[in-house]
């Protein structure tokens, strides 16, 4: 391989240097420059080859050839890099001259939306998870026992005429509230119990702006030692503030539910007039949003919880109603009509 003389190497180095500089000068793209670099200084490059062959030269010749080759390599590299930087600058300058119409419509990836009922349930669920509650679920087609009897509503109880029930058979109603879920949960779990139960419920109501035969309820249940109405009140205050905003006031008024005693209707400050009184709240400044109360001792005893040792509270609300108040929706039918123009809004 080493037939070439010393001078030959030097000559070659000079030629390569010259050639490469001319080529570099001519080059107009980064790619070309990279090829040039590779051709002379790459793994199989011409200068690289000479540097690798140094060991085959006589010892006294090596320093000169080596020096020349190294110098050439540095010069080529420098020249290529300078040229590269120049080119890059030019590219930047060119790119900077480009201009687009920023008002043209954007290209969009698809994004769907959760139904407002789900969105509202999630929001409320998260509030209560934050307060240490778990979520309990249960069947929608229920037995009379769980939907009524276990909740202190025996067959001829006057409360049965209050809510019209849909039935599969006399003994199998569609649940009219999610309270049966709570009974099922209490049967299987010992206190302390902190649960919420969102879900579909059914009433024999015709569809109109404020009624629907299918709607969604959200109930809560706490059974623990020393639970009182004061705890119920505070819990609902937290709920109302989180859902309707800081400072939203809550009021409890005596009411009647068979499964709680004392029972309370819960009012929140009207969101429309902030308590001043308007047509939405029939001038009272308050809007009824949920029912609540202390769990009736009968209900606790019935599932085997000692009502002397444990007390509890429960509350329930209509999810659609909460959403209607919060988002100022006046017609409940919109929730089940599923018009995309409604769904896309939330």
């Amino acid at each position: 391989m080493i037939e070439k003389g010393n001078d030959r190497y030097i000559k070659d180095i000079e030629k390569y240097l010259k050639d490469s500089l001319i080529e570099t000068d001519k080059a107009s793209t980064i790619d070309e420059l990279e090829k040039i670099y590779y051709q002379y200084l790459g793994r199989k490059g011409k200068i690289t080859y000479i540097l690798r062959s140094l060991s085959s030269l006589p010892k006294d010749k090596r320093p000169l050839v080596g020096k020349k080759a190294n110098e050439a390599s540095k010069r080529i590299e420098k020249f290529v890099n300078e040229k590269k930087n120049n080119l890059k600058k030019k590219v930047v300058e060119k790119v900077l001259k480009e201009e687009i119409d920023i008002t043209l419509p954007g290209r969009q990836l698809q994004l769907g939306k959760l139904h407002l009922i789900t969105k509202t349930i999630n929001e409320i669920v998260d509030i209560f998870i934050g307060m240490g509650y778990k979520v309990a679920e249960g069947p929608e087609v229920e037995s009379d026992y769980y939907n009524f009897e276990a909740l202190n509503i025996p067959p001829d109880h006057p409360a049965r005429t209050l809510q019209d029930t849909l039935f599969i058979t006399d003994k199998m109603p569609l649940r009219t509230h999610t309270s049966p879920v709570q009974i099922r949960f209490m049967e299987r779990n010992k206190p302390p119990i902190y649960i919420i139960s969102p879900g579909r419920v059914y009433r024999r109501d015709n569809i109109d702006p404020t009624h629907s035969p299918v709607f969604t309820q959200f109930e809560g249940l706490v059974v623990d030692r020393g639970i009182s109405m004061a705890h119920l009140k505070a819990t609902l205050e937290v709920f109302a503030e989180k859902v309707f905003g800081e400072g939203t006031k809550v009021r409890l008024l005596p009411s009647y539910f068979p499964y709680t005693e004392p029972s309370a209707e819960v009012l929140v400050q009207c969101q429309e007039c902030m308590g001043k009184g308007c047509s939405v709240c029939t001038r009272s400044g308050w809007i009824e949003i949920l029912g609540s109360g202390m769990v009736h001792p009968y209900v606790l005893e019935n599932v085997g919880i000692d009502s002397e040792e444990y007390t509890g509270f429960a509350f329930g609300m209509g999810v659609e109603r909460i959403a209607m108040l919060k988002y100022k929706i006046s017609d409940m039918r919109l929730f089940f009509e599923n018009d995309l123009r409604f769904l896309k809004q939330f």
């Binding site: 990836l109 698809q110 994004l111 769907g112 939306k113 959760l114 139904h115 009922i117 789900t118 929608e140 579909r200 059914y202 035969p213 299918v214 969604t216 929730f335 089940f336 599923n338 995309l340 769904l343 896309k344």
Partner: peptide
Amino acid sequence: ISQGFYEVWNFSF
């Protein structure tokens, strides 16, 4: 919803 679908709630009937 990340795939562009909208959730609906229909009656159970």
